[in-house]
């Protein structure tokens, strides 16, 4: 009863989300099954990567500004936050976060008579996303902070000369320039964040109903076939594709950020890791 590849894709294409065949393949492993299931797991890597990046971007901006602030009440907490998250391995952050989250009362927290359910926080989709969000925010904040410090003095002086001040000076002069300068390094951060998502099920959060990411399924196959040379390179292949896609998307944004510059000055995106994980 060998399944055709199309049937395999129908059965396992969305397995990582809990749809399709409930039991994972147990014998007669085919290459098609490898590619389908590992590809299915990649959905989670994309989910973690995209959402953490999206939320992290906003927090990173706030943190970068706080770190550049004069008031120590803003600056110190931001500096500490960035130091702790950049200074420790993500893997330990996952572990400690998980340990903290399981301490929340299972029955839920009672706030003003309304019971808030807490059990979902230990699930990877929420807990790991939260850690990745904080982690990438810290790394990106450092990048943006560095970029903010290197905004050309002339730009700011020109803004002053035109009478552009306060919020509008920030929004129209400082912030776009900061993004433009920090963008190549931010692209690297994005790549590394996507790579870091493979740690979620590997050493952080438990896999629920055998729903995991690309590495989880690769591990499953390596475990069943006792052959690591097929599943792990497949994960590598998927990630190279993902990285290329990411570089392309960030390149497009980079072009837009630099569109006002004369074409010979427009720096092509240079993948020089300024600040990477």
């Amino acid at each position: 009863m060998a399944m055709s590849c199309l049937e395999t894709i129908q059965a396992y294409g969305l397995r990582s989300l809990g749809y399709g065949e409930r039991l994972l393949p147990r014998d007669d492993f085919t290459l098609c099954q490898h590619f389908t299931l590992i590809g299915s797991g990649l959905i989670w890597n994309v989910y973690f990567g995209v959402l953490a990046l999206l939320f992290g971007f906003f927090l990173a901006n706030a943190l970068a500004l706080a770190k550049a602030a004069h008031s120590p009440w803003l600056r110190k907490p931001a500096e500490w936050f960035i130091f702790v998250f950049r200074g420790s391995p993500l893997f330990i952050q996952f572990f400690l976060a998980y340990e903290l989250l399981v301490l929340l009362p299972k029955a839920g927290i009672n706030v003003l008579g309304i019971t808030i359910d807490t059990s979902w926080t230990t699930r990877a989709w929420a807990g790991a996303l939260f850690v990745l969000f904080l982690n990438t925010a810290a790394y990106s904040a450092e990048i943006f902070h560095g970029a903010l410090k290197s905004v050309p003095k002339g730009d700011v002086e020109a803004a002053d000369a035109y009478g552009i001040t306060g919020w509008s000076r920030f929004r129209r002069i400082l912030w776009p320039t900061m993004l433009r300068l920090g963008w190549p390094a931010y692209t690297n951060e994005a790549i590394f964040l996507f790579h870091a998502t493979t740690l979620v099920f590997f050493s952080g959060f438990p896999a629920f109903q055998q729903r995991g990411d690309a590495l989880y399924y690769a591990n499953y196959f390596a475990d069943k076939t006792f052959n690591p040379f097929i599943p792990y390179p497949i994960v590598g292949f998927y990630f190279i594709c993902l990285t290329l896609l990411l570089i392309w998307v960030f390149g497009l944004i980079n072009r837009r950020l630099n569109r006002h510059l004369p074409s010979n000055l427009r720096g092509r995106i240079r993948l020089r890791p300024q600040l990477i994980r």
């Binding site: 790579h195 870091a196 493979t198 740690l199 590997f202 590495l215 690769a218 591990n219 390596a222 690591p228 040379f229 792990y232 390179p233 994960v235 590598g236 990630f239 190279i240 990285t243 290329l244």
Partner: peptide, 10 residues
């Protein structure tokens, strides 16, 4: 392009 952990595994 590939997460380091994937390399380490094989």
């Amino acid at each position: 392009g590939v997460p380091d952990i994937v390399y380490f595994l094989f």
